[in-house]
Design a protein around this nucleic acid. Structure first.
Lengths: 217, 217
DNA sequence: CAATTAGTTTAGACAAATCTAAAAAAAATA
DNA sequence: TATTTTTTTTAGATTTGTCTAAACTAATTG
């Protein structure tokens, strides 16, 4: 069983691994975990001893099979709690991350299985991210970035790839929430911003925002 | 804000204070918290510095006003989570203590207020213990121990004063669960055991068990 | 390819919470 | 009250996770 801190490292390494095939760098971890590179090196050595990561000096880390399992489990707990917070306690999707960050470390497999059942086995969290099943299996449907669509395309908003409160609040205000149908009316060549219609309204979405919105055609 | 460990000490001191007017002893805390007296002394000093307890060497501790507030808050969180686990996730009343012990340390006042609302502002936890309201006010209705009743008395089972799984499972098996109506048929002089009828059945409850069952006449 | 810069590791220290062993104080008892 | 026993505290060490400063390695660039 891992400590609270070890779990945080595993989770961060897992998330950083998703963007790359290569090993995750010490500094990248340090930045995410809000600590110093020296501390990361110490922890990495510990995780390596426990066979949770593969590590060669100066080469960064990769999760081992068992490290990955542990990480996916944490992700599962985090996302289930987020669903609970939004669906049952009426939190907004931009308010749940920090609380779920604490709840995800509660150690009780039974608790999580029952929570999953109570929530009717949700497939995605409030931001559209897939929830691993109890065997760690992840729905690997990949959605398309809004920036990849062309004028005339129709689609459904399925998720986001940026989870900051600020970003989510902006989407909320603009009406760009999960499940909504959109139709691209135009792509502005000049700045790459997207003109689209949603619920009979015409809005303009900047490229910066659009690239973090995930669509199913 | 207190650390996880500090919160545990405050909670234990609070519970030990309920049985006595006088200060709580170092050894008593050590036993409850599964640690050594030396460690308790260290922590007590720390809590005293933070003005959460009054402490004089060799004299034991008492919670200050602010220490008591903090403790009651923890108790509130613990009991609300227990209600959630039993009512929503279908845990049995003897299974929830350890999980609630972890959940009670999640720091988010908003979370607890919403959980309270979601649970419809319960007054008591699954063992009959009162849940402090958000201002820390506790329903101070005191129930009567089953051992205090006389033959012919009728009452309702309102709570228990012993929370071990073993005890609760025994009650469950015997049918002595919260809300049930009982009628005392006889008190056995020899061993102080209680003969009572519950749901048209006659059962015998040992004095040791009876003294931990709380009744409203 | 030598020098600079960026990234990483080591060494040594620190804070929190714990421990053991020994000393000190308080309480119980003869 | 003197002695024994119980309880509590102190002193010094340990573990976990962190830090700073300095040293080292790798990557970049002139």
């Amino acid at each position: 069983m891992q400590s609270f801190t070890e779990e945080n490292y595993l989770k961060i390494i897992y998330h950083l691994s998703l963007n790359t095939e290569s090993a995750v760098q010490t500094n990248a971890i340090a930045e995410k975990i809000q600590t110093k590179a020296a501390s990361v090196t110490d922890m990495i050595k510990k995780l390596a001893e426990k066979q949770l990561v593969d590590y060669k000096k100066y080469q960064g880390v990769k999760l081992t099979e068992s490290g990955k399992n542990a990480a996916i489990n944490i992700v599962r707990r985090h996302r289930l709690w987020e669903v609970f917070l939004v669906e049952k306690l009426n939190f907004k999707w931009d308010e749940v991350h920090d609380i779920a960050e604490e709840l995800e470390h509660i150690k009780s497999p039974e608790l999580i299985e029952r929570l999953d059942e109570f929530l009717a086995f949700p497939k995605n969290d409030p931001h559209g991210d897939p929830i691993p099943d109890k065997n760690g299996k992840l729905d690997n449907t990949v959605f398309i970035k809004l920036t990849k669509l062309k004028a005339g395309d129709k689609g459904l908003i399925m998720g986001v790839s940026e989870h900051s409160s600020l970003f989510l609040q902006h989407l909320e205000k603009t009406g760009l929430t999960l499940g909504k149908q959109i139709k691209i009316t135009d792509i502005t060549d000049f700045d790459g911003s997207v003109e689209l219609s949603i619920e009979n309204k015409q809005i303009n979405v900047s490229r910066e925002v659009a690239k973090h919105i995930l669509i199913k055609l």
